[in-house]
Computed example of a mutant assay.
Amino acid sequence: MNYDIEYAYACHRGKVRSNNEDNFWCCGHMLPEINDGSGEISEERCSSRTFPVLALFDGMGGESCGEVAAKLAAERLGSYYQRNRAKLKHRAEEFVQEACREMNRAVCSYAAKNRISTMGTTLAMAVFAGQKLYMCNVGDSRIYQERNGAFFRMSTDHVQGNGLFGKAPLTQYLGIPEDHMVIQPSVAEIDCQPDTRIMLCSDGISDMLTEVEIQAILNRKKNASDTVHDLMKLALEKGGRDNATVILCQVHERKAKEPIRERLKKVLQL
């Protein structure tokens, strides 16, 4: 099946934080290190034949380390993708695992060089590899799937405990030195099918909205841009306590082009 991916994305500083530590990499687009969010919702459409990759990052660490970590990871994902996109034809899971290691090394290298002990970033990533879609996360940024009314969380929260008395600490994130702990991203694989919707979000969305509220918005079947708008709007209305980033992908079957001979026949009959 040949298919198109319609996707939309936005990043907002929120209503409480003074800076934005979120970032994204959407088919080459990312934010600068110091930013106040995307300022608008971006919407694109591409073919599955381009093997698109979309990801978001929620940086963490004081003294601007969060935004540095998020930008470093986004940049490294971009450079890795440019060098290794061919792997997505036959070795997609290898691509996912190696990309995570590369992003982790980029953050760790900067931290070691600058003697920073507390910096890192989460990751949520969607990788379209022909007839397969790989969803990968490190940390607590979430990935959801919706199709024909069925709604699933596809990511795993890498957190310690249940966070009953505050934000639970992360057990996995990009920025963990390899001699301390091995990065173990959670990876889910599904077949790409028409009308599948994949939503990636930072905790500025998932902490403000319940999964029932997220599902209700996805079930409205609006286009990608309007759906991102509705998710962001509700998260801000409910307090916007954190930076918020959301990426929504929708799979559309591409109709086969009519043969040139048949089109010429129709033109001649007019």
Rank of each mutant, 00 (worst) to 15 (best):
N2H: 14
D4T: 10
I5H: 07
I5V: 15
I5P: 04
Y9F: 15
C11H: 06
C11A: 15
H12F: 03
R17K: 15
N19W: 01
N23L: 04
C26T: 12
C27G: 07
G28W: 02
H29C: 02
M30S: 10
I34L: 12
N35G: 00
N35H: 14
D36A: 12
S42W: 09
C46V: 13
L56T: 03
M60V: 03
M60R: 05
V68L: 03
A74R: 01
A74V: 02
A74H: 03
L77I: 05
G78A: 04
R85W: 05
F95E: 03
A99R: 00
E102D: 13
N104D: 09
R105F: 11
A106W: 01
R115I: 01
M119I: 01
A124M: 06
A124G: 13
A126Q: 03
A129H: 02
Q131P: 00
K132Q: 11
L133C: 10
M135C: 13
N137K: 05
D140H: 03
R147W: 01
H158T: 05
V159G: 06
G161D: 13
G163P: 12
L170S: 11
T171Y: 04
T171I: 10
Q172H: 11
Y173T: 01
Y173A: 04
G175M: 05
P177C: 09
P177F: 06
E178I: 08
H180F: 10
M181I: 10
I183V: 14
Q184A: 14
A188L: 07
P194N: 05
T196S: 13
T196E: 12
R197Y: 07
I198A: 05
C201P: 08
C201H: 07
G204L: 03
E213C: 05
I214C: 12
I217S: 10
N219S: 15
R220V: 02
A224K: 13
S225L: 14
D230L: 09
D230H: 04
L231F: 03
A235C: 10
G239H: 13
N243K: 08
A244L: 10
I247D: 03
L248W: 07
Q250S: 15
H252A: 14
A256Y: 11
K257W: 10
E258K: 15
I260F: 09
R261S: 14
E262S: 06
K265I: 05
Q269V: 12
Q269K: 15
L270H: 15
